[in-house]
Design a protein around this nucleic acid. Structure first.
Length: 574
RNA sequence: GGCCCUAUAGUUGAAUGGAUACAACAGCCCCCUCCUAAGGGGCAGGUACAGGUUCGAUUCCUGUUGGGGCUACCA
């Protein structure tokens, strides 16, 4: 039975605590805060002693006596009020590295598999994707990749906005520009197309009436309007797919299940809620009063599922979607990677989905929220002209800045190769800038920080990888089965970091926090850079040389895999 | 008004209740006859305020102040 490092230490320390008379005490294992405290610390003794009115130092002594870390730790010490400091045995760390090298999964254990729905990206198809869509798209993609890597069955759901009044306006405008023979040009810039359609809608009452009629026709299943709507969606989705392709995001048409897909279910949802006594009429609308949420008068807060005019809302659509995800997709866990402003909506929706029986207790429902984007002035982000930055423009700028840098560093390199490197570096920098931040925080959009290529950035990690590749291009004749042997401190620190990969992935999947993986990879790359400076690889000899090459190999494999899970490419040279 | 999020070096960010708060950028100083200097080493600099819980608080609780969001028919 494979275990992560944390699981292994946790099990051993808990066994010792149990033997010392504290059967249910948590071990509280964590990486040591300072190098002189060893590699790991177990902090559970203080709490356990407190709960049992024991002397913590005495309990720590007893736990350490019972603690079996033979072949794992070289030193176990008690410090301070009852910390247990564990220094791992170099031979054990070398063994972990050797096991990882022998395993295609780098020694990462598979947890019990779940079926996980990940709802992410979900752009509004009426407009072009802008920087505000970046977070959901890449956080969701990274989570989907990590969950898949761990062995879960992931069902991506791109819950696109493809329904509602604005599509009547857009299809009506599409007909107009087609009659003028300018449809292809007009649709080239979706943002502009929307703006013009809106202008027509606001200025021309006749057009506005026609647009409203189209909405009714569309929702009534009219074939002609439906065909126009489909064409518009096709073009809009194509725009999205160009962005996904550039970002290296794995979403396809098969993952698209937009709001329109639930259209036929909406009346049934409302009827069902009424039948269950949950939805009632109030001020002409169909409303569910949820006791769990109070309004300003202290009464149960209203959650509208059908408007006065009979129209439906995103609440209704999301209820239909959760019913589908539970009932048809049989999900064990559903993640909603959606902006934090919708937090209340999701709390209400989840609560109602449970009450209505759409989501069984066994289905974990999680709103994976993220902070809103701010400008450099700390206020909600807008460009100087008051608009938004198109995602495509950001990516273009990223590639062009990276291209200038690559060209400056490699003037003799063929342009095609420089372009390829610039693409991976530029896109990687944009993604990493976003993924490396705690998603709960609001996020300041800045061209310079988004497009930085030094320090804690994707290019730093990519650069570490190319350095390793460069070593291997020069290493002639080496033993690809040689064991890792650790002697130099820099080797040991690198091996220790490598051994933490599996725990990191567990943390990312459990907490839905991609920035844990970024922080890990940055640490790993840093440990490698120091090893690289301190320990000559190719100029060393014998088993030391072979061992160092093997460490390089595992580092490269881990960096490539980890960056791959973030959707960031590695390069042979840069 | 109520509810949610948030406040960490000059700046942008990290820190499952653990020991002397971790980085990057910007600043200053070193290191390419040495496996790619997009790198490495060093200096300097920080938890909004006031209480509380705890053996121990950036973390939990209360209050104050500042920022953002949501709060019945947009999503």
């Amino acid at each position: 039975m494979k275990q992560t490092l944390n699981e292994l230490l946790d099990a051993r320390v808990r066994a010792a605590l149990s033997a010392a008379g504290c059967p249910d005490a948590p071990a509280v294992i964590q990486p040591a805060g300072r190098p002189e405290f060893g590699d790991y610390q177990a902090n559970g003794v203080m709490g356990a002693a407190k709960a049992r009115r024991m002397n913590p130092r005495a309990l720590a002594t007893e736990v350490v006596e019972k603690l079996d870390l033979a072949g794992i730790a070289s030193q176990v010490e008690i410090a301070g009020p009852g910390f247990i400091n564990i220094t791992l045995d170099a031979a054990f760390l070398a063994g972990r590295a050797n096991e990882a090298l022998a395993d295609a999964r780098l020694g990462v254990p598979r947890p019990a598999a779940q079926r996980v729905v990940v709802d992410f990206s979900s752009p509004n198809l009426a407009k072009e994707m802008h920087v505000g869509h970046l977070r959901s798209t890449i956080i969701g993609d990274a989570l989907a990749r990590v969950l898949r890597y761990l062995g879960h069955e992931v069902i991506a759901q791109n819950h696109v906005g493809d329904w509602g009044t604005q599509f009547g306006m857009l299809t009506a405008y599409l007909i107009e520009v087609e009659q003028g023979g300018e449809a292809a040009i007009a649709l080239n810039d979706l943002e502009d197309f929307y703006r013009r359609a809106k202008q027509r809608f606001d200025e021309d009452a006749e057009f506005a009436t026609r647009a409203r009629e189209y909405v009714v026709k569309l929702q009534g299943g009219d074939a002609q309007v439906g065909a126009l709507w489909q064409r518009f969606l096709d073009i809009s989705l194509h725009h999205c797919e160009e962005v996904y392709a550039r970002l290296g995001v794995g979403l396809t048409r098969a993952d698209v299940r937009g709001e329109s897909a639930y259209n036929d279910d909406l009346p049934a949802v409302v009827t069902d809620l009424q039948a269950k006594g949950l939805a009632v009429e109030s001020e002409g609308a169909q409303v569910v009063f949820l006791d769990e949420f109070r309004n300003k008068e202290g009464e149960a807060q209203a959650y509208i599922v059908q408007k006065q005019d009979g129209g439906y809302l995103y609440s209704t659509t999301d209820l239909a979607a959760v019913r589908y995800r539970a009932g048809t997709l049989h999900a064990d866990r559903a993640l909603y990677v959606v902006d934090a402003r919708q937090s209340l909506h999701f709390q209400q929706m989840f609560t109602l989905a449970r009450k209505a029986g759409y989501a069984p207790a066994t289905l974990q429902l999680e709103h994976v929220g993220f902070g809103v984007m701010l400008g450099e002035d700390g206020k909600p982000f807008k460009t100087r002209s008051g608009g938004t930055v198109k995602l495509a423009d950001l990516l273009e700028e990223a590639e062009s800045r990276a291209f200038a840098l690559v060209s400056a560093k490699n003037p003799d390199m063929a342009e095609a190769e420089r372009r390829e490197i610039a693409r991976a570096v530029g896109i990687g920098a944009v993604k990493y800038a976003d993924l490396s931040k705690n998603r709960n925080s609001d996020y300041v959009f800045s061209w310079d920080s988004m497009l930085a290529f030094e320090g804690n950035t994707a290019p730093y990690l990519q650069y570490a990888y190319t350095r390793i590749r460069s070593v291997f291009r020069r290493a002639e004749g080496w033993d690809e089965t040689a064991p890792v042997v650790l002697s130099d401190p820099a080797e040991r620190l690198l091996a220790l970091e490598l051994a933490r990969f599996a725990d990191t992935l567990d943390d990312v999947a459990r907490e839905t926090m991609p920035h844990f993986l970024c922080a890990y990879l940055y640490e790993l790359a840093g440990k490698f850079m120091r090893f690289y400076e301190a320990c000559p690889v190719l100029k060393s000899e014998g088993e030391v040389r072979a061992s160092r090459l093997r460490l390089c190999q595992l580092t490269a494999d881990t960096l490539r895999t980890g960056l791959g899970l973030l959707g960031i490419q590695v390069l042979e040279t840069m």
